[in-house]
Design a protein around this nucleic acid. Structure first.
Length: 554
RNA sequence: UGACCCAUGGUGUAACGGUAGCACUACAGAUUUUGGUUCUGUUUGUUAAGGUUCGAAUCCUUAUGGGUCAACCA
C-alpha cells in the first residue's frame, strides 16, 4: 500500500546527510571513512561502524576510505593492519584504492603545528606530565595557565624544531594548543597536540620522534581526505569543539563530526584492552577464538558475513546507550544459515541401536540437502542394522510430552524407517549398553504405507560408515549480561564452561569433504562449521549456534 | 557539585504539532519426516511535574535517571 512510506525511516545520520544533499553542501558529495587504530583485532562493534560508514557511502553514491589511525607507535603493529583489512574484506566491503594511513600525513601535521605556532595558538611546554595534569584542573573547577604559555613565537618555533630533530628527551616537553584553561570542556584546556616518542613507527621507522595526539591527527586526516561526514562514537562528543577549533584555526576543509552510540551486546566485552588480556593470559586460544566478539572469532565460529551485516543494520543507529539482546545476533546468524547451510546428520553423544529384524548389509537412502532450497539437491546416506542415535533421544521413563523413543515407543529415523524400541540392554552397572529395536519395512521414507503415526523424527548415523569427529561446543564467554559494566575483575565473570569438547561424536561420511569455515546444519542439533585446526584424519567442527529449542524451555 | 549528550513495550528503533508503528523476544495456535523453518494471533510503551496549543512522544521550563570528560591512548 504505502511501501514508499516505510522506506523513509531514516536514522539521524541519514537525515543529516539528506539535508546536506538538499542544501548542496560540498556539492552534494558524500565521503566517509573507517578509521581503526591498528592496536588490536576488530570486533562486532567495529563491524557496525564499518557497515555504517561503507553503507552510507554506498547508499548516497559516495566513497568510504579505510584509514589507519596509526599515531601511537608503542601499541601498534603490522599484524593488526593485516587482520583489519582481512576482516573488512570478509565482511564484504571494498575501499578500492583508498587505503590511507595517518602516518602518511606526518609532514602535513608538522606544518599544521608550525602554522598554529606562528599564529600564536600553540606553545612548547616544559612542564612535567604531573604538573600539566595538575594545572589542567578538574571538570568542576578551572585550571591554571602554564608558566611556559607566553613564550615568544620564535622561541616556540625553535623549540618545536628541536623536538622534531631529536634534540630533546622523551617527556621533556610537549606542544600544546593555546585555547582556554578555564573552559568547562576539559579538552579545550590547552590540549597537548605533539609529544616526543623515540619508539620506531611500524611505517615511518625512525623518521619521526614527535607524534601528533589523536585530536591533532584525526580531524586533520579527515580534512586532508575531504571527508564530509566523520562518524564516530559518543565518547568523542566532548572532542567536537576541539575538532572544530582546529578546522577554524587551520582554515582547512570543514569535515563534520557526528557521534552515535556504540554497539553493546549482552554477555560481550568489547574493550580492546581487555580482549588483549584474554589473549595474552591464554584464557582464549587467540584473537580468533570462536568465543571472542572479534570478527575473526565470529568467522571461525561460523557466523556468515551476511548475518553480521544484517545484524548491524537491524540494530539501528541512534545516540541512546543500548544493550542489544544476545539472541538478536544469534537469530541473524540462524536466519542466514537456515537458508544456505547443507543439512547433515551427526550424533554427538551416541547410543547404539541394533535393529533386530533388519538384514545384514547397507542400503543407501536419498535425503535432501536443504529443505529450504530445492536447488541444493539430494545425497545418499547409508543405513544398516547397527546405528547410533543421540542419547537424549531415548528415555527409559519419559516425562509427559516427550516425543522421542522410549521402551515400546516408536519414532521415525530421518529419511529412513519407523522403529520401535523392543528392549533396553544394560551393562552390569545398570547403564544402557544398547537398544534392541525393530523396524517397519513398509514405513520407508517417501513411500510410507505402514499407516503408523509417530510424534517425531530423530537423526541417526549408520555405524560401519560413520566418521569420528571432535565437536567443540561453545557457550557465551561471559556469564553476566554486562561484563563491561561490572566492578568485579572480569576474569571472575567468565562462563566456566564456555567450551566443551566432545571427542567421540559420529558424523555421516559425506562430511569427509567439508571445507574450513563451510557451514552445515547438523539436523536437530545446530549449525556447525569445520575448524581450521581440522585435518583429514581428525575432523573438528565448531558449533556456530544451536537451533531454537523452544521445547527445552520451561 | 561544571560542561556536553541521552530518555518511547522485555530489547532495539520509528512517528519531524494531528490514529504511538515496525523488528526481535515472550506467549498461544496452525503446518511440518528437523520439538528447526514457515504461517496466524495475543500481551506489554511515550521517566515525572508544570507550561504553550483546538491538539504534545514531539515545542518550552524544571525535576529525576543514565552516559561522557580530569592519558604525553585512540
Amino acid at each position: 500500500m504505502n511501501e514508499s512510506n516505510n522506506k523513509t525511516h531514516l536514522n539521524f545520520i541519514e537525515e543529516i546527510i539528506e539535508e546536506d544533499i538538499r542544501s548542496n553542501k560540498h556539492g552534494g558529495r558524500i565521503h566517509t571513512r573507517f578509521p581503526p587504530e591498528p592496536n588490536g583485532y576488530l570486533h562486532i562493534g567495529h563491524a557496525k561502524s564499518i557497515c555504517l560508514n561503507f553503507g552510507l557511502a554506498e547508499k548516497y553514491n559516495g566513497k568510504a576510505n579505510l584509514r589507519f589511525d596509526d599515531t601511537n607507535p608503542v601499541t601498534e603493529e603490522v599484524e593488526y593492519i593485516e587482520s583489519i583489512k582481512e576482516d573488512i574484506r570478509w565482511l564484504g566491503f571494498d575501499w578500492e584504492d583508498r587505503e590511507f594511513f595517518a602516518s602518511d600525513y606526518f609532514p602535513q601535521f608538522y606544518q599544521f603545528a608550525i602554522q598554529l605556532i606562528k599564529a600564536g595558538k600553540a606553545f612548547v611546554d616544559h612542564s612535567t606530565q604531573e604538573e600539566i595534569s595538575k594545572m589542567r584542573g578538574i571538570p568542576t573547577a578551572p585550571g591554571t595557565e602554564s608558566p611556559f604559555r607566553n613564550r615568544s613565537i620564535s622561541e616556540n618555533l625553535a623549540l618545536f624544531e628541536e623536538m622534531k630533530n631529536g634534540k630533546l628527551k622523551e617527556g621533556e616537553c610537549v606542544l600544546r594548543a593555546k585555547i582556554n584553561m578555564s573552559s568547562p570542556n576539559m579538552h579545550l584546556r590547552d590540549p597537548i597536540i605533539y609529544r616526543i616518542l623515540f619508539t620506531p613507527h611500524h611505517r615511518t621507522g625512525t623518521e619521526w620522534c614527535i607524534y601528533p595526539m589523536y585530536d591533532f591527527a584525526h580531524g586533520q586526516s579527515d580534512s586532508i581526505e575531504g571527508i564530509t561526514h566523520s562518524v564516530c562514537t559518543l565518547e568523542f562528543e566532548n572532542h567536537r569543539p576541539l575538532y572544530e577549533w582546529f578546522i577554524q584555526e587551520l582554515e582547512i576543509f570543514p569535515s563534520r563530526q557526528i557521534e552515535f552510540a556504540r554497539l553493546n551486546v549482552e554477555y560481550m566485552m568489547m574493550s580492546k584492552r581487555k580482549l588483549l588480556l584474554l589473549v595474552n593470559e591464554k584464557i582464549v586460544s587467540g584473537w580468533d577464538d570462536p568465543r571472542m566478539p572479534t570478527i575473526s572469532g565470529m568467522r571461525r565460529r561460523g557466523y556468515p558475513p551476511e548475518a553480521l551485516r544484517k545484524f548491524a543494520t537491524e540494530v539501528g543507529v541512534a545516540k541512546r546507550e543500548n544493550l542489544i539482546e544476545y539472541v538478536r545476533l544469534e537469530n541473524a546468524v540462524r536466519e542466514q544459515l537456515n537458508n544456505v547451510a547443507i543439512r547433515a546428520m551427526a550424533v554427538l553423544r551416541p547410543l547404539k541401536v541394533i535393529i533386530s529384524n533388519y538384514p545384514e548389509g547397507v542400503e543407501w537412502l536419498p535425503v535432501e540437502n536443504n529443505p529450504e532450497d530445492p536447488n541444493a539437491g539430494i545425497r545418499e546416506i547409508p543405513f544398516g542394522k547397527e546405528i547410533y542415535i543421540e542419547q537424549e533421544d531415548f528415555m527409559e521413563i519419559p516425562p509427559p510430552k516427550y516425543f522421542r523413543l522410549s521402551p515400546g515407543g516408536m519414532a521415525r529415523l530421518k529419511a529412513a524407517y519407523i522403529i520401535r524400541c523392543d528392549e533396553v540392554v544394560k551393562n552390569e552397572d545398570g547403564s544402557i549398553l544398547h537398544l534392541l529395536c525393530s523396524y517397519f519395512p513398509e514405513s520407508k521414507s517417501g513411500s510410507d504405507k505402514s499407516g503408523l503415526k509417530v510424534k517425531t523424527t530423530i537423526h541417526w548415523i549408520e555405524c560401519q560408515h560413520a566418521l569420528k569427529a571432535e565437536i567443540r561446543l561453545y557457550e557465551k564467554l561471559f556469564e553476566v549480561k554486562e561484563p563491561a559494566g561490572s566492578d568485579e575483575d572480569f576474569r571472575t565473570l567468565l562462563h566456566p564452561n564456555s567450551l566443551e569438547v566432545i571427542e567421540g561424536a559420529w558424523i555421516e561420511p559425506s562430511l569427509a569433504n567439508a571445507e574450513i569455515h563451510q557451514s552445515y546444519q547438523f539436523m536437530r542439533t545446530g549449525y556447525f562449521c569445520l575448524d581450521k585446526d581440522s585435518t583429514k584424519d581428525h575432523l573438528i567442527f565448531n558449533r556456530t549456534a544451536t537451533l531454537k529449542e523452544t521445547w527445552l524451555k520451561t
